[in-house]
Write a protein that binds this DNA or RNA. Structure first.
Lengths: 252, 252
DNA sequence: ATTCCGCTATTGTACGTACAAACGGAGATA
DNA sequence: TATCTCCGTTTGTACGTACAATAGCGGAAT
């Protein structure tokens, strides 16, 4: 075990060095069966408990760790979810609201799509797995979701039953790379005829259009577009309690 | 000066007691001409510097304070803005992006509006000040903004030049109550004919619809609706750097 | 077998000290 | 007058110590 020693001459604070060090080891999954205690950190890195705690404090402030008095420190496996913005996972938002939901798979096949490939940042002729789903909440249509993934990463996904599963959870379960970088963008749109029919929207009813591109350590993992009914799914910010802006479905 | 002493027998940590104490005094505006230094806190509250710093750390984590080495602690006057979600002020977002902007006042008058009154939570026959503005960024129309405020609060606003001023800043300047509670909601819409013309939108182009209701200590201050061009104003979340979801205008 | 007690491990709180780094103003200097 | 240097103030970092509070485990007592 070659612990990278901390550089006491560096202008970077010791605790900050320790933080990046621990963050690395966290992402490498070294602590999946247990995070070191304060005492272990002080001895293995030869810093004071104060310094070790400052590093750990930063990590737990980022949501990567949860500490509990008497119990110890547990690694937050949903590191990724935590670090994302409010728009993270449509599936999870709906689930969190307690609305019964399901997915109807419209397409699941290998395709070539120049537009999606460009957004993924891969060759325009690259083969992609396209997963197209109609999402239902409370029995009524909520969103149309289309995800393109590079074929080599997504091949095992072709056999999965998608009707009740979140994409990222499934990726994680089968060891496929889950995005830890990327961006997403939300715009209003007039849905096309196909989507309008799927979502059972009247003419002249607008919808949200959510685009997302996700990378894993720099390599593209998914490109996704989602058309969401605006009347049933709203972005609500309640700052009475000082809460963060949040995405949540309205009551049906 | 009767400093509320801290209760050392309480199960609540000393630093937490100190935090709420300082937060109270902050909101009362006691520190507008200077926040006490670590040393002053330790002596006046008779705690260690460690404890005082823990309290201050919490406050600055909430965005109420900004500390700087060598300089001291400054009160963040925009406490309100900080505590809000990402959608806070359209004006400020555009300004932050460095886009040249202006407002064209379409209406500024005293009205009665049952719908707005209901949303404000006041009598449906109450007189309200309606401020309707077309917001321009980079010379092109960006949004149509309509704000209703109770007449008694907003009377002096009738004389203000609104072409370049943010509503909240103006409220604060004249001592009128600035909201510290409320909620906002974002949905997609097909703009009506009037708004479509104002925003120079083609038919079938959707837009964001932002509603906001703001209170000051429980009493309603404003009800506001904003129709925003979706093609020029987008909600972008970039989590490459772990940044929060942010609202910012796209480059024109 | 079950309950209860107490021990240990671990994090939280709170105190202390010392020095480093950075800002800003006072005073010296050109 | 303008600029530079020095020094005090203030926050940041880092060390130390001690005890409290809590969770979980094992052993004792019923």
């Amino acid at each position: 075990m070659s612990l990278t020693p901390l550089d006491r001459g560096s202008p970077m604070p010791l605790w900050a060095q320790l933080e990046v060090e621990l963050r690395k080891r966290l992402e490498a999954g070294e602590f999946d069966l247990g995070f070191p205690t304060d005492l272990q950190l002080t001895t293995s890195y030869e810093v004071s408990r104060h310094t070790a705690r400052e590093a750990v404090r930063q990590l737990s402030a980022s949501g990567l760790l949860t500490r509990e008095r008497g119990r110890g420190t547990v690694v937050n496996r949903s590191e990724f979810e935590q670090s994302l913005g409010a728009l993270y996972s449509l599936f999870e938002s709906v689930e969190a609201a307690g609305v019964e939901q399901a997915s109807e798979v419209l397409r699941l096949e290998v395709v070539t799509d120049p537009a999606a490939a460009a957004n993924l940042g891969v060759s325009v002729s690259a083969k992609l797995v396209l997963l197209e789903r109609l999402r239902l909440a409370g029995g009524a249509p909520l969103a149309v979701d289309r995800a393109w993934l590079p074929q080599k990463l997504a091949k095992p996904l072709l056999k999965v039953d998608w009707s009740r599963t979140a994409l990222y959870a499934e990726l994680a379960d089968m060891g496929a790379p889950v995005p830890n970088q990327g961006w997403e963008r939300l715009t209003p749109v007039m849905p096309g005829a196909v989507d309008r029919e799927l979502l059972e929207l009247d003419e002249n009813e607008a919808a949200f259009f959510l685009e997302r591109q996700g990378n894993r350590d720099g390599t593209p993992v998914e490109w996704r577009t989602t058309v969401i009914r605006g009347d049933r799914y709203r972005f609500v910010t309640d700052w009475t309690t000082g809460e963060q802006s949040q995405l949540r479905p309205t009551a049906v």
